[in-house]
Design a protein around this nucleic acid. Structure first.
Lengths: 251, 251
DNA sequence: CGTAAGATTGACTCTATTCAACCACGGTGG
DNA sequence: CCACCGTGGTTGAATAGAGTCAATCTTACG
């Protein structure tokens, strides 16, 4: 089991910021607009949206949201990848999910952030101050509706993951993980065969409820069976999708 | 591992129904009103709410919502207990959660119900037809805001449970389960020491990602250590809360 | 009272973990 | 340029925690 020595990676946060003054066009030109909740807001009201946001840039490893803290900010990911995680008192870690372009960070109880967030790659975030975000929600019912739909989706995704953690074998978990990655990649216009994994084996292990060693062993087993292939650990090719699917379903 | 033979318990559903005609007062007198999302709707508009709902009564074991089906109805629990679960192709089961008075059933993707729902006890449900519910949401922004808060909470609770499933030992899981039950009982005005468990050991096992045998062994171990006590399997007394808490945290 | 479903307990097995060694790669600095 | 180091990844051997199989007990109920 990977354990994290207490007091690691609590880096300051928020290296570079671009002010709000970039004009009305910023949100209209946003690379993430097509896939983010912001597209619930009409073109002609984007200036108001832009005024409520700040763009933040992060380097890999930066933690920008801390479990237990008061939720001052909400975020939309403009580019890059992020992981959400929880730490136990003794250092055990659970990775809750991996997020990318268009994903929203901000659900949870109103009093405390449910899990920490860390940049896996260089990341650009669109940051909302909580109060301003609330005003936006009240002003744009469409945005609220959209957000409810996203939260509702997330509930379902969470239930799916609980099933994986509670009832699947290591092989099944890894196979599902790879297939889910492929789907996510495809959804963003990427390849559904060649995957770039922005996370380490340790992240994957903590996400799947396994150890690094087990994840590694399953990867090599899948490679030996020629279901996948890879030269570096981070870029994997899915060679036999049906085979992976079979394994993911307990074949 | 408990496995479910395919085609079990797919009982018809919805035994008794009370029509919509019970008048304006029904929602005002509802036992669950204080703790359900309906309290986002003002007193003087309850008649409209009542017109959108049907009360349904179920016996233990009845499945009233099926994973994968189209979500025709949404529910609020008026009384009784319900479990949500998912089945794998080979019969493995994951119990996603246990719900009671005031809880809302209806999150998920718009196209398919994320998990099945079964009555654990006699249950009274308040049923919303999907279309009518949507109209309600559009009519009462407060209701929508409330629902977003509930969904957001549920996301956080799900993350908590993922951590349990991914990273806790059997003892920790059971201890946490009992403490969570105690809290839930207290929240509804019940005892936080004497618990009535509406679910079987098998349900608990599928909820905690364990087997019946392991759950049973942990229960007896906790009893031998005098952290809990019980005469029947279904009614447990928490004798040493701090002790349980210590175990739940890896003590 | 007899039956069936649920719960407990024991003996054994096995999957995934732990512990440990080793390898590969990328960046740094002499 | 290359040696060095650290991080991340792989692999092997031994271990343990939970699972499986099976027998027995308990309880609820017709």
């Amino acid at each position: 089991m990977t354990t994290v020595p207490p007091g690691t990676k609590a880096e300051p946060c928020a290296r570079i910021e671009r002010g709000q003054g970039c004009g009305v066009e910023r949100c209209g030109l946003c690379e993430a607009r097509a896939v983010s909740i912001c597209n619930a807001i009409e073109e002609d009201q984007l200036s108001e949206l832009a005024r409520a946001t700040t763009v933040v840039e992060l380097a890999p490893g930066e933690v920008f949201r801390n479990e237990g803290a008061s939720p001052e900010y909400l975020f939309n990911i403009i580019s890059g990848s992020v992981k959400l995680f929880k730490l136990l008192a003794d250092g055990r870690r659970a990775v809750i999910g991996f997020l990318t372009v268009g994903d929203f960070i901000g659900f949870g109880r109103p009093d405390a952030v449910p899990c920490s967030a860390e940049a896996l790659t260089n990341v650009r975030l669109c940051r909302f101050e909580r109060g301003k975000f609330r005003v936006l929600l009240e002003t744009y019912p469409k945005l609220e509706r959209r957000l409810l739909a996203v939260a509702s989706d997330e509930v379902a995704a969470g239930q799916e993951h609980m099933t994986l953690l509670g009832r699947l074998t290591a092989d099944e978990r890894v196979a599902r993980f790879l297939l889910a990655r492929a789907e996510a990649s495809q959804r963003l216009g990427g390849s559904s065969k060649d995957l770039e994994l922005p996370m380490t084996r340790s992240d994957i292990a903590d996400y799947l409820g396994l150890t690094i060693e087990t994840v590694s062993r399953v990867f090599t087993r899948l490679r030996r069976k020629e279901l996948i292939d890879y030269k570096t650990a981070r870029s994997v090719t899915l060679q036999d999708r049906p085979g992976l699917l079979a394994i993911s379903e307990g074949g």
